[in-house]
Each structure stands twice: as structure tokens, then as C-alpha cells.
Design a binder for these strands. Structure first.
Lengths: 339, 339
DNA sequence: TCCGCTCTTGTTAGCGCTAACATTCTGAGT
DNA sequence: ACTCAGAATGTTAGCGCTAACAAGAGCGGA
């Protein structure tokens, strides 16, 4: 920086002023400084800047370190929103899903001197750890946590998973289905719990029996395993006529299992998923599913984070933003078979 | 830090020594310092440390900002490998694929004072920009770039995409197919180019005609569109008996198009993809595909990066590491129909 | 012409840490 | 007891930057 100052014939402080867009710099001087910066290819040292301003313009993202569609898409969206706001993004993914790992990762992030944290924490346990960590930095948890309790430095943002499940269930109900089963995901995940609860509520509201098949995981393999069981029941005549799968991977496993048993979708059984994967429209048949507004979520998360930093009072509800999912109707749902 | 020093009754420098595992500290002193750190909940300021050591223990990842399976998996793998080595990870994703955006993102990363960059740059243009940027920091490009030219600070690491395509093609050839078409991906991508070239080479080696269908993109929709065209040709009797799809998304589009035309896979036509998506095994039929060793790639990238930093001479070949993909045979490939 | 104001620029200090050097302590050898 | 090497600890300086204050320059009004 002092080289630049020398070349421009000013003091280093004036250079700093130019860099920080300080108002009281004569245009001519500014130009000379800018020229010197250009000539020397000078780049300001962020570490020094962070040291003196105690601001890193970096936000941390804590997430689960696998390629699950939901979290991955959310991370991408947050990242993009952060960059749009001029923030850098430091990602820390959890390999193991336990509290210790979450605490460690959180510590790492904080150690980095980030300005805020966005936690993409679909897991019940991770969310809890973050809440209890008593973070000093602004934090936003992206999760439809029913126990969400915003504080002055902690906010929540989510997509309404209950709405997703209700929309799916009611789409099926509207088609005339009454025996609507649910193949649930991994129950350590908030999303799994919420979708399950809302489907169950929608069924019970109408006095319908709610049969749950616990797949125990989000993968196609889990759906496939349940699909074989369900196929047996359908063939035996006492199975469901429609299934709400906790996500599209499970749904594709279901589709596959039914296909193997010559059960036609949607003629013999309807299937709805959640997520709308890149290729869900090209499954056989094209999958009716619930799409989540990931981009909007990312933006909402950043807005909430910046809001905390700016000292904005938290919104009244428990969530700072609740985004609505969207039902995408394709070919895997139809009225139930006659009789 | 001085608080800790006071509480432990030592100088701040001794605290620093304890923190940095300096050998010449009496065990008793060390313990007292550690206790003081614990009591005060002290965390060392990374910005100050970075300033004085000019080391941030952060590596930057430059990638394309979409959810494409390959890049996303690679990023995840690099991230995990970096963390295992005690590095933080700062991600910068390109929204647009152009040179300007790539240069800007690179600049951002460098400005952050990172210790190294891993570029997950499947795009021809991005790789070129990085090469020409004349980066001062160690950089590793993860791409099967045929023009790879390692330098003292720039290394290449890749999965052998030609091998992937050759394995796929030869699997089909071994099954007896002779009319093996290729549905190519987005040609701005190195992977697309490489897979295309290797398939073509394998065909031409045997004097077979190589018919290419340019899907123009990686999505299922692209595959579907080409699939309809190919289906027409197969029905007309002059289509291919097997197809090598540039990735699994394209393959699923193909599968879907064939299913719509009542063409059976693999009886009427075989399909091979590349990637092995989470649910590829559950496609209808289960997709034969090429799996890439992402985890190993991430580790290789970090190893290469650390190698540069440690002043290790670059390896003799143009690539620092070339990893081998793996053919996963499932149900979408079989011998060609008789006649 | 001179005062007093504002605009512009320079000077100084210090963010929290580590490297380098300075000092003190310890204990084996005489 | 006394020396001296080497271990343990302390002191000082400075990384590159910004904030706070200081000083100089320019200008209108009396």
C-alpha cells in the first residue's frame, strides 16, 4: 500500500481513503491513486483489514456433507445470495451427523472470524446444537424446526414442509384417494418429521387411516425396499391406492418396485414425491412432486442474517420467513382404480 | 491473549508458544496456560495470525454454480479432503460460464489471501482463464484437460474421461454391438469433449461408423429430445443398437423416450451412461454406467496442492494424478437384437 | 488584508498475533 | 561453590490496514 502511496505521491492513508470510497478525496487525487493501484497491480490485504475492522465479510455455512438434494441446493442458493451481497462464503460440512461434530464445525467457523453463520441443518440434533451453542455472531438456521425460537442473534427461515405434505396429500385426496400411505424419510431429519406429521394430520382430519412405511433413509434403495412390501399388499388387495413419498429418491425406488411387479403407476397406484429433482419429469412415469423454492430461501436467509447485523428487530413469528413450496402435477398421480 | 497471559502469569508470547506447540515450554506452564485459555474461553484471532504469518489456512474452490452432479460431487470431495488436512474452504461458484466471471471470481479468491486454489473447471474456457491468469498462489485444476500444461504453481488432476468413454464403448462392443451411437453433452465442457473423442476413437479403430447425436446439454430433457429422434430411427430400422450417453441424466431422458415408443431397453437398444447418480440403479431398467472416483479425486487435488506448497517438483506427466473410473454393469445393456 | 470556516491530506497509534532477539533460570560438570 | 550451555521465558518490533486526530490549503466575508 505504501508503494502505491509513493507512486501516487500521497500518503498511505489517502490510498486507504480511495479504497474505502471516502467522500473527501479530490477527484484528481483519487484518479492518480487508482492509476497507481492499477499499475502496481495492488490488492488490499484482507487479513489486515479484517484485523483492524474486525469484519471479515465472510459468512460461514454449516451443512451436512453429503449430496442430498435439499441441503445441497440450499447451500448453493445461500452461497449465491451471499456473493450477491458482497460476502465471501466459507463452507463447513459435517461428515458425521452427531452433536460433537456439529459443535466442532461451529467452533471452526467462529474461529475463522466470520460475520455470520447460516446453518443448513435439516437434522433435529444439529439445529439443537446450534441453538444451545450460544453463538456470539449472527446466525440463521434454515430448517422448518417446529421448536424454532428466534433470539436476538438467531433467526429461522424455512420452506413450509407441512404445507408441502398437506398439498401432496390433498392433491391425492382431491383425486379421490382414501387409502394414502406415507413412506417416510430419515427420522433424524426435521423435514422427515414435518412431512410425516402434516400428512398424518391431513388424514386424521378426515377420519382416514394413516398407514406409514418407515423407509429409514432418503435413498432410492429405501424406497425400493418399502415399494416391494407395498406392492405385495396392493396385489393382495389391502394396500394403499396412493403413496406420498418423503422425497423423490424414495419415490423412484417405489416406481421401480411397482414396475417390477407389473403394477401400473398411476392406474393401479399413485405416487407423489418431494423435491423435484433435475430428472423427476423423466421418471417412468413423470413424477408428481413438490418443488421447493431454494433460491428464495437462500435470499431469505441472507436477508435475515443482514437484518440481525443491522440490528433489525426480529419478526414476530418464530420464523423470519416461511416460503411456500409448489405442487408440480405430472403423470404419476390419477384417480384410484375403480372398485 | 494478554488476558490469558495475565491469568496464567506468563507473557503473551508464552501463550503463543503453547498455542503453536512450541517445544520449549515447561509442561507445568503449558498446563496453566491451557487452563487459562479454557477458563476465559479464549480463541485465537485468525485475522491477526493470517496477517503476521501470511498464511490463512484457507483454500479456495472455484466451481460452476449449478447442481450438476460431477462438479458438485468433486467440490464436496475436495472440501472434505481439505478439512481433513486442517484447511478451511472458501467456495466461489460461477453463475455465468464466461471468462469475465471466471476472472472476477478468481480475483475474489486471491484477494481473500487463500493459500491455494482448487479449480473444479469442467469448462474449457474456465480452465483456459485459470491458466492464463498467472496465479501467484498454488493452484490445482481438476479437469481432464487435454491441453493440460502443469507449471511450478499449477497442477492438473483428473479422472480419465477417455478411459470412461472407452470402457463404456468397449463394454457395448464386447456385447456384440456395432452401431453404437453417442449422445454428447454440452460441448463447452471438457468432459463432453473427451468422452466424445474417446468413443469416436474406439469406433474408428474398428472401422465402425460413429454417429453422434449432439444433445447440447447435460439435462434429462436434452437426452429425451435426442431419444425421440433415435427412437424414430430405430423403429425405421436404421438406428443404433446401443447408445453411449454422455451422462446419466441424458441416459434417463433416453430411457424415457424409448419407453414412450415401446422400445425395450436392453432388448431393443442398450444404454450406458456416465456418473452413477444416487438413483441410477433404480431407473427402469437399472442403468449401466461409469462411476467416477470423486473422493479419491478430492484427495488427489489436495495432495497436489500441498505438494506445490511444499515445493515438491511436479510429476513428469502433464497430470499430477489420473484416476480411473469404474464400469458398473446393470440392466440397461445386453447383446444387440438378433437380425 | 485577515479571520474562520471547510475540504483535503498527513501523522500517529494500534488491531492481535508471531518472529527474532534478549534475558533469566536450571542443572550438570568441575 | 562456580561456570556455562541450553532450556524457558520475556521484550520488542512489525505484519498491512483503518480510525482518530492534526495540520495545511483554499476560499468567502468582513
Amino acid at each position: 500500500m505504501s508503494d502505491v502511496a509513493t507512486l501516487a505521491g500521497v500518503s498511505h492513508q489517502t490510498v486507504s481513503r480511495v479504497l474505502n470510497d471516502h467522500p473527501n478525496v479530490r477527484p484528481g487525487t483519487k484518479e492518480r491513486v487508482l492509476a497507481a493501484i492499477e499499475e502496481l497491480g495492488y490488492r488490499r490485504n484482507r487479513a489486515a483489514r479484517a484485523l483492524v475492522t474486525s469484519q471479515s465479510s465472510t459468512i460461514g455455512i454449516l451443512t451436512v456433507g453429503n449430496a442430498n438434494f435439499g441441503p445441497a441446493s440450499t447451500v448453493l442458493a445461500v452461497e449465491s445470495a451471499a456473493r450477491a451481497q458482497g460476502y465471501f462464503v466459507s463452507v463447513s460440512s459435517l461428515e458425521a451427523f452427531d452433536a460433537v461434530a456439529a459443535r466442532t464445525a461451529l467452533g471452526h467457523l467462529v474461529d475463522q472470524g466470520i460475520d455470520g453463520i447460516v446453518v443448513v441443518a435439516p437434522l433435529v440434533e444439529v439445529a439443537r446444537v446450534v441453538e444451545e451453542a450460544g453463538l456470539q455472531v449472527p446466525a440463521v438456521i434454515v430448517a422448518a424446526n417446529p421448536d424454532a425460537a428466534a433470539t436476538d442473534t438467531l433467526r429461522y427461515v424455512c420452506t413450509d414442509q407441512r404445507r408441502a405434505a398437506r398439498d401432496a396429500t390433498e392433491h391425492l385426496l382431491g383425486l379421490g384417494h382414501r387409502r394414502i400411505a406415507h413412506v417416510s424419510g430419515e427420522m433424524a431429519w426435521i423435514d422427515a418429521l414435518e412431512r410425516n406429521a402434516a400428512w398424518r394430520a391431513a388424514m386424521e382430519e378426515r377420519g382416514l387411516e394413516a398407514t406409514e412405511y418407515a423407509a429409514g433413509g432418503w435413498a432410492a434403495a429405501n424406497g425400493y425396499r418399502m415399494g416391494r412390501r407395498i406392492a405385495d399388499e396392493i396385489v393382495a388387495g389391502d394396500g394403499p391406492t396412493a403413496i406420498f413419498a418423503a422425497n423423490d429418491y424414495i419415490a423412484i425406488g417405489l416406481l421401480r418396485a411397482f414396475w417390477e411387479r407389473d403394477l401400473r403407476v398411476p392406474e393401479d397406484v399413485s405416487v407423489v414425491g418431494v423435491d423435484d429433482l433435475q430428472d423427476s419429469a423423466y421418471f417412468i412415469p413423470g413424477l408428481t412432486t413438490i418443488r421447493q423454492p431454494f433460491t428464495a430461501m437462500g435470499q431469505a436467509a441472507m436477508r435475515a442474517l443482514l437484518g440481525i447485523a443491522a440490528g433489525q428487530p426480529r419478526s414476530e413469528g418464530r420464523f423470519d420467513a416461511v416460503l411456500e413450496p409448489e405442487l408440480i402435477v405430472r403423470d404419476s398421480t390419477a384417480p384410484p382404480p375403480a372398485g
